[in-house]
Design a protein around this nucleic acid. Structure first.
Length: 583
RNA sequence: GCGGCCGUAGUCUAGCCUGGACUAGGACGUCAGCCUGCCACGCUGAGGACCCGGGUUCAAAUCCCGGCGGCCGCACCA
């Protein structure tokens, strides 16, 4: 019999016990979509809540929520329409597919900036000119075609109102920057998160919850002043160690990470910005808290050509999974001012931040004032556009042109010196305007669910159990009558009801032997089992059983709410829940 | 998208090569009843499956074709 790997075992458990399974099975299924079952939803929600607590509540980050369908303009501005598609060519002979641009880079010595500009026809031409053949079999290629990895749709009844399913939640934050900056009372730094669905039309998604066409993404955009890039939270993490594979090591083919503290990583220049280093350390701690030990985590830097178009430095946080090896669970990108700059450019909204200077600077300012009675009759109905363009043009540039050639070409309009008045005034600059920089930690929540399950999976005495951290376990407490007679079920139901009233997620079970019920609960990771026995009827005490050690303690029913609350907040340990119980 | 392997109850699987007595067998799980004084106890019973479509054939879980899905490799994962 073939050996099952952990992914198989965990997926099987996930299906059997209602964590997750492939969607639309009754219609044959479609790859890239999964359904979270009752326990999966609970687990996912708990991880999400824990994330919120960790990153949003405790760090004072804001959270927003906007639409999955996004007007095309947004992704034109963000560069996704341009970059989120890949020119592919297929070998006529062996049918293998390749990236046309990569082939030209590799075999025709073109740079990525060169190939980026080429159209499909030009790519085709270049492939022919350079006689690029299939690197696998030497065959000829078909014409290149784009594969667009964003889902495209139309908004409303008009075909020209193109919309895309967002491939990241980040743009939903950037486009709202003005209001968010305002909300932050115009102070930097601040962070904004969005947790929501994202869509990517993957060519061939596999690997269950690891690669999906629709998934839950968590994007945090952290905005800061590039001239004040210091992270005021750094002392919280500076001695945290990170296992890093920086680009320089990766290029040498080094697979072993260096282990450095956050402080060292910054000093050695492995990580360019303090905030990014901070978030990486925070992400490491988060993964620890959902059950992934340090040595099963690492950060690997993306090489220049691997990075997304918006990123100048990117680290992937990876977790070791038994089947696939190192798998990305979060990406940490330094997006600089790329996104805001592009949205400013495309939307013409001024989304710069303002910072008051300690001492105002005196500056000479050149002001351009159109002389309307002259300029009006000349441009007549075009005047509106001319004025708009003038406003956007640097007066000094115009002045310089006048000095050089006696006129200035404003687009198609010729501006002569007599059309405008150029004034020089002294102005006090009270502050500076700039586009904030952004570091972005971005997580795939569905992957975290799988990761938590794989790391929780254990075998004890031939029984499967999920050693989930207690604060993410889907069901917190099981309540069981030792046997289903003699009034024990009635008593157990009372306790069950009381715990529900107290806000716990509780399951009542009286079917089968007590051992079977413990086993069932262990398998879905329920941390505590409360058993009502004959002693309970005498003195209102119950036993509490620990999922991982199978040890038991005895405690008073009336103490349960308070004790359990503390326990699930990680304030006390199991042994503190009562006195050791001997069978 | 290509190539290889694969698709039987909730889960794991037998059967397929060599078509028929398959009314599709088993184990675990589930449910009901009995039993049960702390780790999947036992007994009785119940419900539950051949991925979809087409073809070959007197007859298809079994052979053939197509589709869908899964896994692995290639490519892809911005």
């Amino acid at each position: 019999m073939k050996q099952k790997d952990k992914y198989e075992i965990v997926s099987e458990l996930a299906r059997r016990r209602g964590f997750f399974w492939p969607s639309y099975e009754i219609y044959g299924g479609v790859s890239g979509f999964i359904t979270f079952g009752p326990l999966g939803v609970l687990l996912k929600r708990r991880i999400e809540e824990k994330f919120r607590d960790f990153f949003i509540r405790r760090l004072g980050i804001y959270e927003v929520e906007n639409s999955v369908i996004v007007p095309a303009k947004v992704f034109e501005a963000s560069g996704h329409v341009e970059h989120f598609k890949e020119p592919m060519v297929e070998c006529k002979n062996c049918k293998r597919k390749f990236r046309a641009d990569h082939l030209l880079q590799e075999f025709a010595g073109m740079s990525d900036t060169e190939t980026e500009k080429l159209t499909l026809d030009e790519l085709d031409k270049q492939l022919r000119i350079n006689k690029v053949k299939c690197p696998e079999c030497g065959g000829a290629f078909d014409k290149p075609q784009y594969f667009m990895t964003m889902f495209k749709t139309t908004i409303g009844p008009y075909a020209e109102a193109v919309g895309y399913g967002r491939p990241e939640a980040a743009q939903g934050i950037f486009v709202e920057f003005k209001r968010l900056y305002d909300f932050a009372r115009e102070k930097l730094p601040f962070g904004v998160a969005q947790i929501g669905r994202a869509l990517r039309n993957e060519i061939s998604p596999r690997q269950g919850p690891i690669r999906l066409r629709e998934f839950t993404i968590i994007d945090i955009e952290f905005f800061f002043d590039p001239e004040e890039p210091n992270c005021y939270l750094l002392d919280e993490v500076e001695n945290e160690t990170l296992r890093l594979i920086p680009a320089e090591l990766k290029l040498k083919g080094e697979a072993k990470p260096v282990e450095v503290t956050v402080k060292e990583a910054l000093e050695k220049g492995y990580i360019k910005t303090e905030w990014q280093a901070f978030f990486m350390a925070w992400a490491k701690r988060f993964l620890l808290s959902i059950g992934v030990p340090s040595e099963k985590q690492r950060f690997i830097e993306k090489l220049e050509w691997e990075r997304a178009h918006y990123s100048v430095q990117g680290y992937d946080q990876e977790v070791f999974l038994e089947r696939w090896g190192w798998v990305e669970v979060s990406g940490h990108n330094y997006r600089t001012d790329y996104d805001l700059k592009r949205h400013i450019e495309f939307s013409r909204e001024d989304m710069r931040a303002f910072k008051e200077l300690k001492k105002p600077i005196e500056k000479e300012k050149v002001i351009l004032k159109p002389i309307m009675e002259k300029i009006g009759p000349i441009f007549q109905k075009d005047i509106g556009e001319v004025l708009k363009l003038l406003e956007q043009t640097n007066p000094e540039e115009i002045e310089e042109a006048f000095n050089k050639q006696g006129f200035y070409m404003l687009g198609k309009y010729k501006i002569l010196p007599e059309h405008v008045q150029i004034l020089r005034t002294k102005v006090e600059e009270k502050g500076r305007r700039f586009i904030p920089h952004v570091v972005e930690p971005s997580f795939g929540l569905d992957r975290l669910v799988y990761v938590a399950l794989e790391y929780a999976y254990r075998i004890k005495d031939n029984r499967a159990l999920l050693s989930l951290p207690r604060d993410i376990a889907p069901i917190q407490v099981g309540v069981y009558p030792l046997v289903s007679k003699d009034g024990l079920p009635e008593k157990a139901r009372e306790v069950y009801k009381m715990l529900l009233e107290e806000g716990f997620t509780v399951e009542y079970d009286e079917s089968g032997s007590i051992g079977r019920r413990y086993a069932r609960a262990d398998e879905i990771g329920t941390p505590l089992g409360i058993t009502i026995d004959y002693q309970t009827l005498k003195d209102d005490t119950v036993t509490i059983r620990d999922r991982d050690s199978w040890k038991q303690v005895r405690t008073k029913i009336t103490d349960l709410p308070h004790l359990l609350r503390e326990y699930f907040r990680n304030k006390i340990e199991f042994e503190e829940l009562g006195v050791a119980f001997k069978e």
